[in-house]
Amino acid sequence: MEDLAANFLTKYNYWAFIALVMIGFYAMIVKRNLVKKIVGMNILQTAVILFYVSIGAKRDADLPIIAHGHGSASHAVHAADYINPLPHVLMLTAIVVSVATLGVAIALAIKIYRQYGTLEEDEIGERIRNA
């Protein structure tokens, strides 16, 4: 039991990301409203972004900007002093991707609403069957 608690406390970022992923999945699979599904999708993507961002973090580390830049070549740069910037940079791209996906999804949702006057999947299905 203690193990679990320790595990939970030291690796809370992973637990948070897992929880978010699950919430996202739940919304996408169980909810019958298209907008709720879109929200779920966004939560899922954000969770993955959170995962990446958190793995770049280090205790007692600083932003990866070398403050004593020019003319101070004598100072050695210790990797341990800085958080890992790579995952963060990658996530800039991932955020762009998720925004674009969201945009297309909402555009399609608007088209569906114009067609059927509703965003509830069950009602749309009924209208398709009746058509």
């Binding site: 993507q45 993955v48 399609l108 949702a109 067609q115």
Partner: peptide, 19 residues
């Protein structure tokens, strides 16, 4: 009639896959 809904479902599944 049908394509936007099919496309949206594809977005959901595609996004899960990509994630």
């Amino acid at each position: 009639q049908r394509a936007p809904l099919a496309g949206l479902n594809y977005i959901f599944m595609g996004t899960i896959g990509a994630s």
